[in-house]
Nucleic acid binder design. Sequence first.
DNA 1: GCGGGTCCTGCACGTATGTGCAGGATGCTT
DNA 2: AAGCATCCTGCACATACGTGCAGGACCCGC
Lengths: 320, 320
Amino acid sequence: MQDEDAFRAATMYYLQNQTMDVIATTLQVSRSTVSRMIAHAREVGMVRIAVEQPTSRSGQNLGHRLAATFGIRAHVVPVRPRSTELQRLDQVAAVAANLLGQWFTSRMVLGVAWGTTVSAIAGHLRRMPTTGSTVVQLNGAANTYASGITYASDLIGAIAENFDATSQHFPVPAFFDHPETKTLMWRERSVSRVLDMQRRVDIALFGVGALTAEVPSHVYSAGYLTDQEMTALTADGVVGDVCTVFHREDGSYRDIEINSRATGPTPRELRRIARRVCVVVGDRKVPALLGALRARVATDLVLDETTAGNLLERATARPS
Amino acid sequence: MQDEDAFRAATMYYLQNQTMDVIATTLQVSRSTVSRMIAHAREVGMVRIAVEQPTSRSGQNLGHRLAATFGIRAHVVPVRPRSTELQRLDQVAAVAANLLGQWFTSRMVLGVAWGTTVSAIAGHLRRMPTTGSTVVQLNGAANTYASGITYASDLIGAIAENFDATSQHFPVPAFFDHPETKTLMWRERSVSRVLDMQRRVDIALFGVGALTAEVPSHVYSAGYLTDQEMTALTADGVVGDVCTVFHREDGSYRDIEINSRATGPTPRELRRIARRVCVVVGDRKVPALLGALRARVATDLVLDETTAGNLLERATARPS
DNA sequence: GCGGGTCCTGCACGTATGTGCAGGATGCTT
DNA sequence: AAGCATCCTGCACATACGTGCAGGACCCGC
């Protein structure tokens, strides 16, 4: 049996730290095969590696300070000082994927937003079979120009497949044009089924969108919003969004017209979810992130250390 | 900060799988230092590695068959077919130590027996700081000839130290000469304090002693039992012991005179403990192990695969 | 301020590990 | 049964990693 030998090899390698040569002899195969078997074992999630903050030490480091400031669990990812934002995204996504793999188990429901960040995370997931679990899309994804559904749909599908979970898509646009349409659609059974599932989410996974971005987030670039809408948002003091629901830097999100047409859960709705994992990379996202944290959308924050530093600085420099 | 950098290095290495060279550049140290930092991180338990049985597959393998036969969780350790018993002990102990490290956390109470097996496990523990936890000795250790206390005491102390736990010794002989002495001692506060702690044990760790051993177990060799007592045990059909309480191959342990003078918990008392980890190596221990399992002393069994094979064979060949 | 610890680092070397490639097995198709 | 595609293996090489050793920083105590 394929996996059986991989398990033996992985056990001998990681738990008993034998060299691959010894394992090869035991299993009567070549050393290279053992190398491949162990790689396989890692890929299918048979091997789980966790690195934990040493418990001691006076909360002087970024992680503890973030935790103390915002009442969240912070996972600060070390990155090289001069790495590009894309590299950082990759690193942070790798860590987030690992964490998700540890937290998500059988019979759970995972809610995911869609976007560059979540997509990067999906790319780093390591196969981990579960049973009876579900992956549900948190916000709509079709826009006026392209259906956009393929993208979000592939993403959800890939994540679900990774966990052997069933996937639940959300067949609505990111924003409705008219609030009334939303009200009506929300009564459709095809939609309300998804909404029901969203209420059962155990872990939510999302990034934040930044309105102020030099490189605009997917939501703003791909024709989801008109110029007119963008202007209105700016005038309202909006800095970004979480799951297509916009907010200001102080964490408020009321009286923002477009939110009545948005399809994702509001911060208030999100807060009903036990574990809410927010993954962020990029200094330009700091104001949006600050607002998101003040709206208490996250219980866990995964970010690179430079962004973390900037976030803390801005949070303490301009207390809301 | 020492640990801080080790954490960064370990994260980059294990979670983002960067090469040590890259990490060295980032941290501005030499690659060898990074290698040492990561080794350090592993040693202090900052890195946790678990290997899990792939969930699938038709319970044809030893682990599943053992689990099904005895209603326990079985952890079968792969070993080289021609390895010596000492090597196997080493391998199995490494795995057991790893499992213990995963299970034992802050504010728990760990009960340990003492003996060759437990001693080997202690040697493989990786440092893992906890708070508010306790390690308590499960059975007495002084015999007629030598105090024996040093040995058991060092063992308990070493395990406790590994977890930053307080240790609770059990200052009584392995066996009393007269049952009445036991009764009286059990009322002493110094003893009853330990007994109270034993009742709060969350995880128990022990091996099994085999009476039939070619190489006799510590308990039988070191002058703990007289020749006369050994003869009596054999006549009674005794095959081995768990925590100095003897049992027969069918799992019964009543009407064995010496048990009334033994200091360890009986199977019945053990069964009150939620997790009971039995670690066994050696074919000669199979009959004793079989009896122990039938007495339901264990919830988790860690053993090498040849012993596992023999155990299953004997269990099915001679159903009690 | 000087000898003698102890601890830590980088170097250099040998060993352990990952991977492109080519040959062989297996299984499916025609 | 031959043809073809796919998968798997071992070889050989390049790379990555662990560790003994020697030099330097630091800390004491006198």
